[in-house]
Amino acid sequence: MHKIAVIAGRELRAYFATPVAYVFIAIFLALSGVFTFYIGGFYERGQADLQPFFSFHPWLYLFLVPAISMRLWAEERKSGSIELLMTLPVTLWEAVAGKFLAAWLFTAVAVLLTFPLWITVNYLGDPDNGVIVAAYLGSLLMAGAFLAIGSCISAANRNQVVAFIVTVLICFLFLLSGFPLVLDWFRGLPQGFIDTIAGLSFLTHFTAISKGVIDLRDVVFFLLVIGSWLYATTIVLDMKKAE
């Protein structure tokens, strides 16, 4: 646990050592604002909630989260520092978890910096803050799931651009797996199988949480997705780290 924290700490500092972190946060905040006020019609709706803000999170994450995750392992492999990290007395799991946690914390910082919206909506009206807390939680869980997918793809590719594109694609499929766009591919297969695919939809689980219903099953779903993809990352790394 201590080593995970040390690795996560190093990684997190590395984000802020370059302008990338600040650029990312600025873009994230700007886009959240644009989506909430212009496209989501925050004022026009006349309701004191953050629904227009959160409903765009999946789409914002779809492109911004892979931009964080693409460098997680691809950069280590490209610069060769992976050899250094892997020859320190740490397990693969500690390294994978540490780097993932750093990326997740970084995303959390970006998301939590949207707090002025929360203040605004409280100033303008009387929102259900419980729902907003739940939605923030759901949003972070979904970001974690995206990051875990990105971590695995980044481990498999030395090229960051390829890692980005493949991650966007896979995240897109997971987002929409409950919708005809994806389900039509599986038409003709047993209903149980199709239901399973549909049950993997990030959008369904996120929407449920962001409505204020923290169902343990939704939380466990995201945690399982994160765990599985991180486990996959360790397997991919074990196979490909020295290539």
Partner: peptide, 12 residues
């Protein structure tokens, strides 16, 4: 262990 090419984290 000193890996070939002595890779390090350049931003540190």
């Amino acid at each position: 262990y000193l890996p070939e090419g002595a890779p390090v984290y350049g931003e540190m």
